[in-house]
């Protein structure tokens, strides 16, 4: 509770300082509009410019990409750490690809997938999958050998060791890593939604930028931040509920 209060007070202080700086006239409003102007812009976007629809579209894109990444990264990561030969074969390639900046792959993804939804989801997936797969492999490696051996000596077969012990043991760190990589997925949203998009928060921000509507740009950024904050808190709550024993 104290931590929450400290967090709220710190955020309020930053907003107050921002409002003060903007109102002092030291910085031109097209560079730094005041929080009140950003709030007004946000209200207008919500009531007149269908912002909720754009938020829903972006959220759907992020979650589709993220779930696809998780669905592939979890089994591949587990196999990579369970079978040394698979790890040795895949890890160098994954290391190579995960260091490639996502914007550098935009032209290639347009060539491959065109300018539809596939490209947007692919770019978001790209930014998430290769990071997540290595994190999952590490989670799997950290499952204590004693847990596996105890299960084997009470008669568990390989599948049972995996489902009853390894996945349960790695559960807390896996959920943490999913929470972190979901955050990364959101950071690629703007890049994904400037590719011939006509919807999504990235599109809204990018369009507002063209007309130097800085309050709208900042309102879009604030919305992404708020979605991130809420998602993160919900996943933390889920973590606490699922892993009461920690």
């Amino acid at each position: 509770m104290v931590e929450l209060a400290v967090g709220v007070i710190a955020a309020a202080l930053v907003v107050a300082a921002w409002e003060g700086a903007a109102r002092s006239g030291m910085i031109a409003p097209q560079f730094l509009p005041s929080p009140s102007r950003v709030l007004t812009a946000l209200w207008t976007m919500l009531t007149q410019q269908n912002l909720i629809w754009h938020v829903a579209v972006s959220t759907a894109r992020v979650w589709v990409a993220f779930l696809l990444a998780a669905a592939l990264a979890i089994p591949i990561g587990i196999v990579m750490s369970s079978y040394r030969i698979v790890g040795a074969a895949l890890e160098p390639m994954i290391d190579f690809i995960r260091y490639l900046p996502v914007p550098a792959l935009v032209p290639l993804s347009i060539i491959w997938f065109g300018v539809g939804e596939e490209t947007k989801v692919f770019l978001l997936w790209l930014g998430t999958f290769f990071q997540l797969v290595l994190l999952v492999a590490d989670d799997m490696r950290r499952v204590p050998q004693e847990f596996v051996e105890v299960a084997r000596t009470v008669g568990a077969n390989s599948r049972q060791v995996m489902t009853d012990v390894a996945l349960r043991s790695m559960g807390p760190t896996l959920i943490d890593n999913l929470r972190i990589t979901l955050g990364w997925c959101w950071t690629y949203l703007i890049i994904a939604e400037i590719v011939a998009a006509d919807s999504g928060i990235g599109y809204v921000i990018w369009t507002a930028r063209r007309f130097v509507k800085t309050p709208e740009v900042m309102a879009g950024v604030v919305v992404i931040g708020l979605i991130g904050l809420v998602t993160d808190q919900l996943l933390r709550l889920l973590h606490r509920r699922l892993f009461r024993y920690l």
């Binding site: 204590p144 847990f147 349960r168 043991s169 559960g171 024993y245 920690l246």
Partner: peptide, 8 residues
């Protein structure tokens, strides 16, 4: 030697 009770 290490505590091998399953924490969950």
């Amino acid at each position: 030697q290490s505590y091998s009770s399953f924490p969950w």
